[in-house]
C-alpha cells in the first residue's frame, strides 16, 4: 500500500482544464502550489504499479455507517452543487467491487455498520472524482470509494476517531487478503474554513489566502508532525485540531488513512501545500513500500 493525503477542491480540476470538465479556467494561478504538488505526487506514484485506488471521500456523507460503491462501472456528468460554475465533469470509472465487498466484510467484523451501494444510477460524488482525477488523470485504475460516515457529527470526535481507525484496519486487512497493490487517497483538506464569497475570476490569486492565522498555524503544526513522522501525535491531537481549525479531518479520511497504514512512524513527503478559498490543503505521500524494503 501507499497512502496519500489528496484533497479534492474542484478548483484544482477546474484549473487543470481537462477535456472532461466543461468550465474553463483563466489560468490566473491562484492554486499553483497545489497543482505543482499534485504533479510532483503523480511523478512519485509512477513507480507504484498499483492495482486499485481506494478513496475515502468527505463528499459522500452517510449517517447509517460506512458505504462503498458496489457497481462495476459508473459514467455520467458530475455537477458540483456547491461550485457548479467550476465543476461539471464527465466521468467514466471502474470499480473494484470484489475489494469493496472485502472491505465491507472486514468492516462488519470490526463491528462497524457497513453497506454496499448497488444503485447503478448513483452519481459518484465530486470529491471522489476530483481526488482520483488529480492522482490519476486517465482513470485507468479501478477504484474503491468509501463514504464518510457521520459518527463525528452524530456522536463525538472521539467516537469518530475510533470508527475510522477500525475502518482503516478493515481496509488494510481486505487489501492484504485480496492481494491487491493499493493506492490509498484520503480526500480531505486540513483546515477547512471557507470564504463565503468568490471573486469574478475564481482563480484570481489576490483573493486567495488562508482564512486566518489560527488556521495557518494549525496547518503548519500538522505538516511539521507529518514531516517528522509523528503520526501517532497527529491522532492524539486530532480532536483538538478538528475543533480549533474547522478541519475537514472531521469527515474521517485522514484518520482512516493513518489507521490503514497502521499509524507508521514514517515521515510523509509533502508535495505541496496551498489554500483554496481560504481552506488549507496538503498533498502528502507516505511510501510504505519503501519503508517495508528498508525493514
Amino acid at each position: 500500500m501507499r497512502g496519500c493525503l489528496a484533497p479534492h477542491p474542484p478548483h484544482l480540476a477546474y484549473a487543470s482544464n481537462p477535456p472532461q470538465n466543461e468550465p474553463k479556467s483563466s489560468g490566473a494561478g491562484a492554486w499553483t502550489a497545489l497543482l505543482e504538488g499534485y504533479e510532483s505526487l503523480r511523478k512519485s506514484l509512477e513507480d507504484g504499479d498499483f492495482d486499485v485506488i481506494i478513496v475515502h471521500t468527505p463528499h459522500w456523507k452517510t449517517r447509517r455507517g460506512h458505504h462503498l460503491l458496489g457497481v462495476e462501472h459508473f459514467e455520467g456528468l458530475s455537477v458540483d452543487p456547491i461550485f457548479p460554475n467550476l465543476f461539471r465533469f464527465n466521468f467514466d470509472l471502474q470499480v473494484d467491487v470484489e475489494l469493496a465487498e472485502a472491505i465491507h466484510a472486514e468492516g462488519e467484523k470490526q463491528g462497524l455498520v457497513m453497506s454496499m451501494m448497488r444503485n447503478p444510477e448513483f452519481r459518484v460524488d465530486y470529491g471522489t472524482i476530483t481526488s482520483c482525477y488529480l492522482a490519476q488523470p486517465d482513470f485507468k485504475l479501478p477504484i474503491v470509494a468509501i463514504s464518510s460516515a457521520r459518527s463525528y457529527f452524530d456522536y463525538s470526535n472521539e467516537v469518530g476517531e475510533r470508527e475510522m481507525l477500525a475502518l482503516g484496519e478493515a481496509t488494510r486487512i481486505a487489501v492484504e487478503k485480496t492481494g491487491r497493490r493499493a493506492l490509498l487517497l484520503a480526500s480531505c483538506s486540513l483546515s477547512h474554513r471557507h470564504f463565503t464569497e468568490e471573486p469574478a475570476d475564481p482563480e484570481d490569486p489576490e483573493f486567495e489566502y488562508i482564512y486566518n492565522a489560527n488556521q495557518a498555524k494549525w496547518d503548519r503544526h500538522i505538516l511539521d508532525l507529518i514531516e517528522s513522522g509523528r503520526n501517532r501525535q497527529i491522532l492524539d491531537e486530532m480532536p483538538d485540531f478538528i475543533e480549533q481549525s474547522v478541519s475537514e479531518c472531521k469527515d474521517g479520511s485522514f484518520t482512516w488513512l493513518l489507521g490503514a497504514m497502521e499509524v507508521p512512524e514514517l515521515p510523509g513527503k509533502v508535495h505541496g501545500y496551498g489554500t483554496v478559498i481560504g481552506t488549507g490543503n496538503a498533498v502528502v505521500e507516505w511510501r510504505l513500500d519503501e519503508q517495508a524494503v528498508q525493514a
Binding site: 456523507k61 452517510t62 458505504h67 444503485n119 448513483f122 452519481r123 463514504s147
Partner: peptide, 12 residues
Amino acid sequence: WVVDEDFHELGT
C-alpha cells in the same frame, strides 16, 4: 435524476 446518498436503496 438523483439518488439519495444515504438511502440509495429506496431508488432513483
